[in-house]
């Protein structure tokens, strides 16, 4: 039997006491539900169980998804659809109005294109560096380490921290009189860096901080992938006298490839949406040097004085289509892996 093992019954007395009112409530609920079952049958009960989730899901996920398109084709600052006027493709046209398509600053919505550019470079660099570090971490954690779960926990720790906390921790460390400058000072660097006011350093900081916060998650998935590679393959390679480097390139990497692909796509999807920690760390600045797409949408839709929900919706749909493509790739990979698993 694959059913989960039962919990010990000695500790269940207190639990039973705590559960008593809940159980009474459930028995109370059962009475009308038996009536419902009688009238609708078992199929009707399936609908009953599914209904709350699908209702909430429909109102707060599906409906917004649909009316987002309507929004993107209306203008004005009002939020109620009825008060908005239809403008057709004007918002999209506005996003794409540029004098010179090679220079984002010549566009009507230069902030949008700046955000696109920033996000693009952020995604490329962050994902590449993060996957590399995650892979190295996973490979090291997969070695014959004492207390592996401790080391795994070390790298995983920041993953659970809230983005706001992450942003604040690093804002504190990276400030002019912060820990990092102190450490550099100890090594003899006299002039303190202005990490969060220099355009390049700030951009680098957002990449570094987001890698710090999320790398452990990807390392964990890669580690699971590494541990799923059968040990006897390595033993066979050892028997054949294969060199370690060759083992890595010819056994580890090919067998890890499906996991690696999933991790890359997942990281891409997340990186495109980067917002929280950057917003707290830099607020998009200095200037627009760390203004990323989600912040652009948020500010265009809600925060700025000249808010334009229609424009924000149009931008979000453009971003959404990128995510859809990435998600489809991911599902495609997942399907392929599943088929492979079946052989």
């Amino acid at each position: 039997m694959t059913s989960p093992s039962p919990t010990s019954s000695s500790s269940s007395r207190l639990g039973a006491l705590l559960m008593a009112p809940v159980n009474a409530l459930m028995r109370l609920i059962d009475v009308p539900l038996r009536g419902l079952q009688k009238s609708t049958g078992i199929g009707g009960m399936a609908a009953f169980f599914l209904a709350p989730n699908m209702l909430i899901f429909g109102i707060f996920v599906l409906l917004p998804l649909v009316i987002n398109f309507v929004y993107s084709m209306t203008g004005g600052t009002a939020f109620f659809l009825a008060e908005r006027n239809f403008v057709g493709g004007e918002q999209y046209a506005r996003l794409f109005t540029c004098q010179n398509y090679l220079d984002p600053m010549s566009c009507q919505e230069d902030a949008f294109w700046t955000a696109v550019g920033n996000t693009f470079w952020f995604v490329i660099l962050q994902v590449a560096l993060m996957i590399l570090t995650a892979l190295i971490t996973a490979l090291i954690l997969n070695r014959d380490l004492a207390a592996r779960s401790f080391w795994r926990a070390v790298f995983f720790f920041p993953v659970l921290l809230s983005p706001v906390v992450v942003g604040l921790i690093w804002k504190w460390i990276l400030q002019r009189q912060g820990l990092l400058n102190f450490i550099l000072f100890q090594f003899g660097d006299t002039e303190p860096y202005t990490w969060l006011t220099d355009r390049t350093w700030t951009f680098a900081a957002t990449i570094g901080v987001s890698i710090w916060a999320h790398m452990g998650f990807y390392a964990l998935i890669l580690l699971a992938g590494l541990q799923a590679i059968p040990k006897d393959l390595y033993e066979a390679a050892e028997m054949d006298g294969t060199k370690p480097a060759r083992v890595f390139w010819r056994i580890t990497l090919p067998l890890l490839a499906p996991n690696l692909l999933v991790v890359v796509v997942l990281a891409l999807i997340r990186a495109v949406q980067i917002f929280d920690e950057v917003y707290v760390l830099t607020g998009g600045g200095p200037g627009t040097s760390t203004l990323y797409l989600t912040q652009y949408i948020y500010e265009t839709g809600f925060a700025s004085a000249l808010r334009n929900p229609g424009l924000a919706a149009a931008a979000s749909i453009l971003m959404g289509s990128v995510l859809v493509v990435l998600t489809l790739i991911q599902l495609g990979i997942g399907r392929k892996n599943e088929n492979k698993g079946k052989r």
Binding site: M1, S3, P4, S5, P6, T7, S9
Partner: peptide, 10 residues
């Protein structure tokens, strides 16, 4: 066939 005993009950 599998007895289908409720595993969480005595």
């Amino acid at each position: 066939q599998s007895y289908a005993l409720y595993p969480h009950m005595s």
